[in-house]
Amino acid sequence: MAAIRIRTCASRGRADGDWYSNPHSQRLEIGVGISNAISSIAKDFMIIINYE
């Protein structure tokens, strides 16, 4: 029987180095706690469902 693992994640805009002078990219950040959401941004919270 396959195991199902569910984890929280969020899509975040990040820069390598200084925020204002370096290019930004979207990154998938996988959480380790109950939630990985920012309360002021409603659309960045997601879950990952992994069928093992």
Rank of each mutant, 00 (worst) to 15 (best):
I48F: 00
P23R: 01
N22S: 14
S40Y: 07
W19T: 04
D44M: 05
Y51D: 09
A15R: 15
I41L: 06
K43M: 05
V32D: 09
S35A: 03
I30F: 09
G17V: 03
L28H: 05
I49H: 01
S39F: 09
A2I: 06
S39W: 10
R7P: 00
S40C: 06
S25D: 10
S40T: 14
M46N: 13
R5I: 12
I38D: 15
A42R: 10
R27G: 01
W19M: 01
D44S: 14
V32E: 11
S21I: 07
A10W: 00
I38K: 08
R14K: 12
A37C: 05
V32G: 14
S39I: 10
I48E: 05
I48H: 01
I38Y: 11
N22A: 08
L28K: 07
C9A: 15
F45T: 04
D18T: 07
S40H: 09
P23D: 05
M46H: 15
I34W: 09
I48W: 01
G33M: 00
A42F: 07
S39Q: 12
S40F: 03
A2F: 12
N36L: 01
P23L: 00
A42L: 04
A10V: 07
M46P: 00
I49P: 00
Y51L: 04
R5L: 07
Y51N: 10
R12G: 00
S21V: 11
R5S: 08
I49Q: 09
I6C: 03
R14C: 08
I49T: 14
G13R: 14
A2G: 05
I48V: 11
S11T: 10
I30M: 06
Q26R: 13
R12W: 07
R14S: 07
N36E: 13
V32S: 10
R27V: 11
H24N: 01
H24M: 02
A15G: 02
I47R: 09
F45I: 00
E29F: 08
R27C: 09
A37K: 09
Y51F: 10
S25Q: 09
S39M: 07
L28D: 02
R27T: 12
I30H: 03
S39Y: 12
Q26V: 12
G17Q: 01
S35Q: 06
C9L: 06
I41Y: 14
G33W: 02
S11Q: 07
A42D: 13
W19E: 08
G33S: 07
A42E: 12
A42V: 10
I47V: 11
D16T: 08
D44A: 04
I47F: 09
G31H: 08
E52G: 12
R12D: 04
G33R: 06
I6W: 02
I47D: 03
Y20I: 01
I4M: 03
R12I: 11
